[in-house]
Amino acid sequence: MQINLTLNGAEQSADVEPRYLLVDYIRGTGNTGTHIGCDTTSCGACTVLVNGTPMKSCTMFAVQANGTSITTVEGLKQNGELHPIQTAFKEKHGLQCGFCTPGMMLTGVALLEENDDPTEDEIRWAISGNICRCTGYVNIVKAVQHAGSLIREN
């Protein structure tokens, strides 16, 4: 089936089988920052923003993204500058192996869009659909908080 969508600001079209998963479509375009972790809707490593809302791209078909605008981790950077969430993850050491990081950052971006000064509890609740097996979450929470303060300063 023919699909047309916007991926990180660029218009894309493709001919895909209905069962082709959105995550594989995205990775096939070279945007391999979107990871496949559990492949069973549990881990959140494949999280992308669909029209600004976090979705698990292993649990959507590419055909369902027809007409949408999708943001992956590659689309966060603007005009060559890191997004505040990327700066914050770097400065607060919010990652170790990095596998969950794209999903964590996109979920964090969506949270900060709604509330740029979330409490620790609100952050922990918001990222509860994204699993990290390295960090124990402490620095991830600090990074999201720090990103909020960077956004507020701007």
């Binding site: 809707t41 959140g44 999280t47 809302t53 976090p54 979705m55 698990k56 649990t59 959507m60 979920t107 609740w125 918001a126 990222i127 509860s128 659909g129 994204n130």
Partner: peptide, 9 residues
Amino acid sequence: IADPIVRNR
């Protein structure tokens, strides 16, 4: 219900 990302969909 489920987790926050699943609840979006």
